[in-house]
Nucleic acid binder design. Sequence first.
RNA 1: GCUGGGAUAGCGAAGUGGUCAAACGCAUCAGACUGUAAAUCUGCCGGCUUCGGCCUUCGUAGGUUCGACUCCUACUCCCAGCA
Length: 272
Amino acid sequence: MSAKNRIAEKDSRAGSGSAVFDVSKWPVLVIVGPTASGKTGLAIDLALTLSERGICDCEIVSADSRAIYKGMDIGTAKPMLTEMKGVPHWGIDLVEPNDRFTVVDFCNYALKKIKDIRRRGHLPIVVGGTGLYVDALVYDYHFNDVVKNNYSDRQEMSSDYVVFGIDWPREELRKRLLIRSNKLFAQPIEEETLTLVEQYGWDSQAMKSDIYPICWEMMRGNIDREEAIRLNEIDDWHLAKRQLTWFKRNKNIVWIELNGAVERIINFYLSR
RNA sequence: GCUGGGAUAGCGAAGUGGUCAAACGCAUCAGACUGUAAAUCUGCCGGCUUCGGCCUUCGUAGGUUCGACUCCUACUCCCAGCA
């Protein structure tokens, strides 16, 4: 079934009978934001809403440099199958924590996935907090003949993408980080840490995520659970600030609040 | 009550007569970033500043000294041992 037929079918099923949305002309939706800003949830909500209204189907491409690793589930707050609610996700569990996976690998992968998704007539939603990954995509980085520190063309973003950023007041974001840190440590994070250490050792990418070394210290009895949760929250805060610093210079990001974001984005597409 | 130890910037912790606004670590704040980026790195971090400096700090109050965070006295509080 072609994309158009499928959309038309959905459309008539929804009973609106008028507009047929040509999703292939829509720019790829990119959702960015600091860690714990609610990117994943927003993308899924949006996909479900668009589908329910018979507008289009969506597929999510994760642009997260940690979620690509297998076995790092709790520590990276990876979306679980039940949370995905049937929306296809790509870019998760691609390689083992001791495999090399670079921005370039990500680009190649993401570009291919976006192409595939478009071929199916669906809307690709790129979701990620890894600024470099996102920029490499939307600014069409060329990694071969790079001249260091000469990226004046950064302002010219590819028109194939729209980037929305989830904006939170600093205090609110901090609260969210603390809540999430508590949640992570309420899960069997010790088990995950132990498995990762035993399987891949300390030099793997897994241990480059702050939470695992912290958890390890807790397991060794050097710090208590409360302290571990606190330290993890602080590290997440540092991460969030670095992410924000990175995003800040991308003047093309449209910053929106999580509340009402679904409608905001749908309106953007429907009113083009 | 007596005897030891201690009180230093947001926290921890150096300094024991001058080169101390005070090492270092953490936190805070800001920034960089094109092949592992949740990484890696930089600056700031008492107040004011025309960025050269200026001013106020090291439990409190006095004292010694040209000069004290550093020495002396008293007081307040904390920890430890003895009563």
